[in-house]
């Protein structure tokens, strides 16, 4: 017994080493459950406020670019208002589609990365602003990501540049949809899967959100088809999509709240229960 104890004491660095490595591995493997403990990710009070302070300083250097983006978006919105006014003046369509399913919460990006294998974004809006997990994040130029963790006044999400998340996307022209995911190589490009060979496709086709996931409304820009190939022995195209949003310079985003998401989920659950009951 004493010699065993002496052996343990003699080898304590190795045992401590093993212990710490095992803790690390447990962290890595159980990543998602630990991420939910919000003090262990960047939406916790200390790191979020440091990031918030820091981005407040750095933001000044980007103001020119932000201004021009906002101006462009303003112009775009004004055009849309004009078109809407014209179509309403004509009043051909008696049914005014008052689609208030989606609400938007403007937020500022306080931390973001593009060069990791799993990229995350931290925003300065949290629970008290109505942000909840599983809400979509978009910028004026296109889809950014999805909220995963929310603290009192900050929130954190995955971006498209994270293999842990894929978004349901469709080709605007033909309406065929597939899933869009990042392959970890280039922060400007993602891969669109599950588009069968018989679909007519050309370079430059627009890829938008499909609206099937209830996270994003239909038709939000994601990017354009850059290259496409037909791999031998497969049924689906290999499509590279050039993202329209510039993840390196994103500073202002909007969080999309789907006010009917609980209703949709309940419906889904009821359907599944009914099926399993039969």
């Amino acid at each position: 017994m004493r010699s065993l104890l002496r052996l343990l004491i003699k080898n304590y660095p190795f045992l401590l080493f093993l212990l710490l490595e095992v803790i690390s591995v447990v962290f890595i493997v159980n990543y998602n459950s630990f991420q939910r403990a919000s003090f262990l990710n960047s939406s916790n009070a200390v790191s979020a406020s440091i990031y918030s302070w820091y981005s407040g300083v750095v933001q000044y250097f980007r103001l020119a670019k932000v201004n021009s983006d906002l101006t462009a978006e303003n112009a775009d919105l004004r055009n849309k208002i004009d078109q809407l006014e014209i179509s309403h003046m004509d009043s051909v369509s008696p049914v005014f589609n008052n689609d208030s399913t989606f609400h938007y919460i403007a937020a500022r990006v306080i931390n973001n990365s593009v060069n990791k294998q799993q990229n995350y974004i931290t925003l300065n809006k949290g629970r008290k602003d109505g942000v909840k997990p599983d809400q979509g994040i978009i910028s004026s130029k296109g889809v950014i990501g999805i909220i995963t963790n929310v603290s009192e006044s900050y929130s954190m999400g995955l971006t498209i540049l994270n293999p842990r998340w894929s978004v349901s996307a469709k080709l605007k022209k033909s309406g065929y949809y597939g899933s869009l995911a990042w392959n970890g190589l280039d922060y400007k490009r993602v891969v669109l899967n599950e588009i069968p060979f018989h679909v007519q496709l050309t370079q430059g086709d627009t890829v938008v959100t499909s609206g099937y996931s209830s996270v994003f409304p239909e038709g939000i820009l994601i990017g354009t088809v850059e290259t496409l190939s037909r791999p031998e022995g497969e049924n689906y195209y290999q499509i590279q999509v050039l993202l329209s949003a510039d993840f390196k310079s994103v500073t202002h985003v909007e969080i999309i709240e789907n006010s009917k998401i609980d209703e949709i989920r309940n419906l889904k659950r009821e359907t599944e229960n009914a099926e399993s009951g039969n």
């Binding site: 690390s24 447990v26 890595i28 493997v29």
Partner: peptide, 15 residues
């Protein structure tokens, strides 16, 4: 790790 949302990765390499 906590700052870069990569729980466990940096601690493993450091130890």
């Amino acid at each position: 790790d906590i700052f870069s949302n990569t729980l466990g990765i940096h601690s493993f390499a450091s130890v």
